[in-house]
Computed example of a mutant assay.
Amino acid sequence: MKSEQDYRVQLGKVKNLPPLPEVSLRIMNAVNNPDVSVDEVVEVLSLSPSLVARLLGLANSAYFGYSGKINDLRKAIIQVLGFNLVKSLSLSIALNVQLDTRKCQAFDAHFYWLQALTAAVLAQKLSAKTQVDVLQPATVYTSGLLLNIGVLAAVFLFPEMMQAVFNRCQQSGQSLKEGICNAVGVSHYKLGYLLLNRWRLPAIYQTVVKEFENPDFGESEMLLISLHQISQSMASLINKGMPVDITLYKAELELLSIPAGYAAAAVEQIVTSRDDIQELATIISS
Rank of each mutant, 00 (worst) to 15 (best):
S90W: 06
A123Y: 01
N148H: 14
S88N: 12
N84A: 13
L145Y: 08
K129Q: 14
Q136P: 05
D100N: 14
F111S: 14
A123P: 07
S88H: 12
T142R: 13
P137M: 00
Y141W: 15
R102D: 08
L147C: 07
Q115R: 12
L91N: 07
L95F: 12
Q131M: 15
D133A: 15
A123I: 07
V97I: 12
I78W: 07
T101S: 04
A119T: 04
Q79Y: 11
W113D: 04
I93G: 01
D133W: 12
P137I: 07
F107Q: 03
L135T: 03
D133R: 15
I77N: 05
Y112H: 05
A123V: 05
Q79F: 11
V134Q: 06
V97G: 06
T101V: 14
A116W: 00
A120M: 03
V97L: 12
F111E: 15
K87I: 03
I78L: 11
G144Q: 03
L117W: 09
N148P: 04
Q136D: 13
V86K: 11
L114S: 06
F83M: 10
S143F: 03
F111N: 15
T118C: 05
A120S: 14
Y112A: 02
D108F: 04
N148Q: 14
A128E: 15
R102S: 15
C104L: 01
T139L: 10
L81T: 11
C104F: 06
T139D: 10
G82V: 10
N96C: 08
W113Q: 02
V140A: 00
A106P: 02
Q98R: 12
T142M: 11
D100H: 10
Q98S: 09
S88T: 09
L135V: 03
Q136H: 13
H110Q: 14
L99K: 01
T118R: 04
S92M: 12
W113H: 00
K87W: 09
W113N: 03
Q79K: 13
L85Q: 13
Q136R: 13
A109E: 10
R102K: 12
L89F: 08
L95Q: 05
